[in-house]
Design a protein around this nucleic acid. Structure first.
Lengths: 218, 218
DNA sequence: TCCAAATTGTCATGACATGACACTTGTCGT
DNA sequence: ACGACAAGTGTCATGTCATGACAATTTGGA
């Protein structure tokens, strides 16, 4: 009787069990990270919390940092889709602006499996843990090639011979980094008063206006 | 009799000995990295080559990656000086372009204690070793705040309230990253046919022209 | 020459990460 | 429902990075 209901969602129960273990590991990890910080939390603690062996942890994640970066991957995919969906007559920076801000707002609203609380936690981890930070930068830089490809398509040029898609994609990435940096380190009166997405929007607006200050008269 | 001659250069002979050990470690490290790659080289091997203990290695460098990043620090300092030396009426991107290209050329010419051979080796290490790559990105991102400060000074604005210096500095950084990326992964007919400094120059030229393709008619 | 400080070696420790192999559990055909 | 096969897990062993503690050595200077 239960077969239909039990197998309901996807394929097999093995898959579901794996999925549950994975999510349990992520939850346990973030809880511990929030409590004691990233460095102070050991893989063994995370695994023990879920009652699996450390070895199993590394079968799900290739490193401790990988747990945190999981979400970044989802966000990046969402960004790619949003960018691809922008009308093709939009200038590239404008398209990246719209796609990027939309994605960031979605994060803040708790899109993806990402409660706002966890969103904040991730940002703090980035700031407080050098290894998470550097791995995140690496991830972003590696993914930038896909952005470059999309931008090149949009421009109708070949990224192997035309440098413009590279510089546009790079500028877009820099907007994200700069927004994050200002948002987290900003010595504004009220730290974190602005939403990260608002800052991102402002940065992209500046990119649209041109950056070689002072602007050439003409 | 020997006191004068012995103490000659700087302070004490202890300092000189330390300096020699440090350089020996760097040389040994790069030799081994070039032979067997970064990951395959252990700290113990490096230390053994110089005939010191592994523990001593970590008294000179806080990590294995640190050996490679040593030069980046010098390069960055040179970049800062070059940027500060640019005439203040130059637009910021142009100033970064001139400073950056000059610095990069200096590297290629073997400036700093950096034989061209070692320069190439470093670039390859960046590409082949994820940890070196990510640590390098981290270093660059952290140092970007100083660029931002210089740019803000040049613009005569406060980086705490004006986002423009951040975006300009970020765009500059992205030019370096993009140039490196294209240079190393470039599927151009002749890989590495162009000098990295030439690529960097081209990227900055694009930044000067504006990046929101297609350019707004007007 | 002898003292004090700086440097190094040795030892111990802990965490990350991976390979090998045996064991358990889910899956699927009959 | 049973059993073969595959997938996932635990255990053990191993190697490397990195750091703290303390003793031994070397150096600079009085």
């Amino acid at each position: 009787m239960t077969t239909a209901a039990t197998h309901s969602a996807q394929a097999g129960r093995r898959e579901r069990k794996k999925q549950r273990t994975r999510e349990a590991l992520i939850d346990a990890a973030f809880t511990l990270f929030a409590e004691k910080g990233f460095e102070a939390t050991t893989v063994e603690e995370i695994a023990d919390t879920v009652d699996v062996s450390s070895r199993t942890f590394f079968r799900y994640f290739s490193s401790k940092e990988d747990v945190v970066l999981t979400y970044q991957e989802d966000q990046f995919q969402a960004l790619l889709e949003a960018l691809a969906a922008r009308p093709s007559d939009e200038p590239v920076i404008t398209a990246m602006r719209n796609a990027g801000v939309a994605m960031m707002r979605a994060c803040e609203e708790g899109e993806f499996g990402l409660d706002p609380e966890k969103f904040i936690c991730i940002q703090q981890l980035m700031d407080s843990s050098p290894t998470v930070f550097s791995r995140s930068l690496e991830h972003g830089q590696k993914k930038q090639v896909e952005i470059t490809r999309l931008v090149a398509e949009r421009m109708g040029v070949d990224p192997a011979t035309d440098l413009r898609p590279h510089v546009a994609a790079g500028a877009g990435s820099c907007a994200f980094r700069a927004a994050f940096d200002v948002w987290i380190h900003g010595n504004a009166p009220l730290p974190r008063a602005e939403r990260l997405s608002d800052l991102l929007d402002q940065f992209f607006a500046l990119l649209e206006d041109g950056i070689n200050y002072p602007a050439k008269a003409g």
